[in-house]
């Protein structure tokens, strides 16, 4: 996150309905793949598509509440903070993302 500056450059990456509820899709970027998650309350979260454990693709995990369980070794990562939950320690970067008029807008730092 970027300290004092707040204005972000949001880019349209697709429609909310392109992501299944409790599912995820990826966006290919120069910073690597970013996973966009959709909760059952239609909130969206964007995380780097890499588990802090051994780089598992988080976009392929099971989404529950505001967390995702990594498909490789079941670490649970908070979608809100990118932090590993429970006793595991690790963090994956999060990105600003929002939905406006049904479009998913992602901001890259």
């Amino acid at each position: 996150m970027d300290g004092m500056q707040n204005a972000k450059n949001f880019l349209d990456v697709g429609a909310l309905e392109d992501i299944a509820p409790l599912g995820a899709r990826t966006v290919t970027t120069t910073l690597g793949d970013i996973a966009i998650f959709r909760t059952d309350g239609d909130e969206v979260f964007a995380l780097r598509d890499q588990c802090p454990h051994k780089q598992g693709p988080l976009s392929q995990g099971i989404v529950h509440g505001k967390s995702v369980t990594c498909p490789l070794h079941d670490w649970v990562i908070s979608l809100q903070s990118g932090l590993a939950q429970g006793l595991d320690i690790g963090c994956t970067p999060i990105f600003a993302v929002k939905v406006e008029a049904g479009r998913v807008l992602l901001a890259l730092p």
């Binding site: 990456v13 697709g14 299944a20 599912g23 966006v27 290919t28 970027t29 966009i36 992602l106 890259l108």
Partner: peptide
Amino acid sequence: GQKYDAMAELV
């Protein structure tokens, strides 16, 4: 098929 492809490419 959606789940096999990236949603967007920002490159």
